[in-house]
């Protein structure tokens, strides 16, 4: 076969990366589990698993990038990738939804009930007498001791500004790509990931502040739990997103992506917008209201 038309379907050949990934997952999960169960060696198994997974990701993506640069992918493949990415992001949204759900449930149901509302008069009277429903709270048992809630202004506000502007810079980069302005593309992509890493750094500063000066910890009752789990998972996603942006940045420098074909770029941009939207939700419901 010599010609490559859209009429013809594209099917990739076999690949060993998935199995490598599974082996990595096995090591990772067994490692973490034994470590959590108190076996120190588990930690190293976990690291080994992580290494294998990173190896797998670079290898797998490397193959795909090579194939893509080789012009193997037709429009249909491009669409498949896009739709795949879209639904992957949707699944991530649902993962966050679980934690937002926990936050809303705690604030609007569990805590008022502990305070005696609805059909829980006796909950308050018999078990938690004197507890009044309020937010933020570490619960009627004062779990984790007295703490200070994270104020919405200051660092979080700066972080909001950073992330929002990074969404703008990545959009500018996208337009630059479409218009074929490569320097502008590279520059704004650069801004974007730098903003991302600064965000992560400031988030770290905020955590240190919380732990050292505010006695606000993961163990600070439901407030601490929801605060750190939501911002923590978000921060993790920002980190991953920023790393991906960095990779894309270097690919741009290498001359990858054309005006017509730049799935990887758009996928990362979508991911970045998703991270941004989640942050807005976080800022409003975790820090502000």
């Amino acid at each position: 076969m010599t010609t490559h038309t859209d009429e013809h379907y594209y099917v990739p050949h076999g690949s060993y990366w998935p199995v490598v990934g599974s082996a990595g997952l096995l090591l990772l999960m067994v490692g973490v589990s034994t470590w959590l169960n108190g076996a120190g060696a588990g930690f190293y198994i976990m690291l080994a698993g992580l290494a294998v997974i990173i190896f797998m990701i670079t290898g797998w993506f490397g193959t795909v990038i090579g194939e893509s640069q080789g012009g193997l992918y037709n429009d249909q493949v491009d669409r498949s990738f896009r739709q795949g990415m879209f639904w992957f992001i949707f699944s991530e949204v649902m993962f966050f939804a679980a934690f937002f759900g926990a936050l809303f449930y705690a604030r609007n149901m569990a805590i008022p009930w502990l305070g005696g509302s609805s059909n829980n008069f006796f909950t308050n009277l018999l078990l938690w007498e004197g507890f009044e429903s309020s937010w933020p709270t570490n619960g009627p048992g004062d779990v984790g001791g007295e703490f200070e809630a994270m104020p919405p202004f200051g660092l979080p506000l700066i972080n909001t500004a950073l992330l929002l502007s990074s969404s703008i810079t990545v959009t500018i980069a996208h337009h630059a790509l479409l218009a074929g302005r490569r320097t502008q593309l590279a520059m704004f992509l650069g801004f974007t990931f730098v903003l991302g890493f600064v965000f992560v750094y400031l988030q770290g500063v905020e955590y240190v502040e919380a732990y050292q000066h505010m006695n606000l910890k993961l163990t600070s009752g439901i407030y601490g739990s929801t605060f750190f789990m939501l911002t923590g998972f978000h921060g993790m996603h920002v980190t991953i997103g920023a790393i991906m942006l960095t990779i894309i940045f270097f690919r741009v420098l290498k001359g990858h992506f054309s005006r017509e074909k730049h799935f990887a770029f758009e996928a990362v941009a979508w991911y970045w917008h998703f991270v941004d939207v989640v942050w807005v939700g976080l800022y409003v419901f975790v820090y502000w209201i």
Binding site: A102, Y105, A106, M109, A110, I111, W113, L114, L127, W128, T137, N138, G139, P140, G141, V143, G144, K217, L218, T219, G221, I222, Y223, G224, S225, T226, F228, M229
Partner: peptide
């Protein structure tokens, strides 16, 4: 890790 999602004393349920 000591979170309180499902612990009433900590404000969870």
């Amino acid at each position: 890790f000591g979170t309180s999602f499902f612990l009433a004393a900590g404000g969870g349920d």
